[in-house]
Amino acid sequence: MKRISWPTIVVIALLVLFPLVVQSDYYRHIFILSLMWVVIGSAWNLLAGYTGQVSFGHAIFFGTGAYTAGLGVTKLGISAWWGMLLGGPVALLVGLIIGWICFRLRGPYFALATIAIGEIFRLVAIDWRSMTDGMDGILIIQSFRSKLPYYYLALALAIACVFAVYLVLRSKWGYYFVAIREDQDVAETIGISSFRYKSLSLMISSYFTGMAGAFYMNYMAFIDPHVVFSLHDISIMAILVAIIGGVGTLWGPAVGAFIMVWLQEIFRSAFFGLLPQWVSEAHVLVFGLLVIFVIRYLANGIVGDWSKITGDWFKKKQLSYSSSGN
């Protein structure tokens, strides 16, 4: 196996040192959320970016993971940390069943089915009050006051998820996933059971997304169906994270996660209180404009088109240099 490259080590080292240098709970919080979104974005990217099965329903797995942790506390009386262990497998099981039903559909029809199932999960979580306490949500007591344990847990999850995707891509599974994305009919004729391998991809993806959900329950200490089964705040956010960073690239979702979480925070706080409060309502609009910009000019995302970004700038500098030289 190839040695891990220098930039990777530097980035990981910086992330490890970050909370030791930056004492502010606010910035630590933003980084914790960003790292959580690295996990969800990378997980979504494995299924959609590499296997070609676009999901609009990753909130299903996030919410399932979160509720596994939460219900462990309210129904079984066990610690929410068990969720970190159980959230992944339970989400995986849900993924397996959804895949078994939905992978009979291709392309946009699969995407539509995932939206529908996502909404079903949200509505069931709202209405099944005896189980979930509906919109009252689940409130637990945080284990730690300090952000540090949560930060390092989120960092470990993010590294584990990106590394898992990296390993998968260098295996038979990775080749099979990409072959299915490129042409499912060809994949079948070269001996690939597209159903089996799409299911495997979904299982890995839902496992990590479920872990992220369980982490969210532990960290935020409060969940309700509108938060964790949200179509636009979770399912679509996962897609945006990957699109901005670069669909079908290893590091794209990681970059996209930090950009999107920061953008969301900048708008939520109306540019840290510098602009009038109504600006905070505009974040969805800005996300929309950003997506239009990225799709129009950087169709492969920031990571996927990085050479284009730097190349274009380099070219422009050269042009201005040569014209001034003349």
Binding site: V178, A179, E182
Partner: peptide
């Protein structure tokens, strides 16, 4: 039907599995 966004070698590796 080439697997378009893969290299020639990766196309063939996928089937050699």
């Amino acid at each position: 039907k080439p697997l378009r966004r893969m290299t020639v070698l990766d196309n063939v590796i996928a089937s050699a599995f």
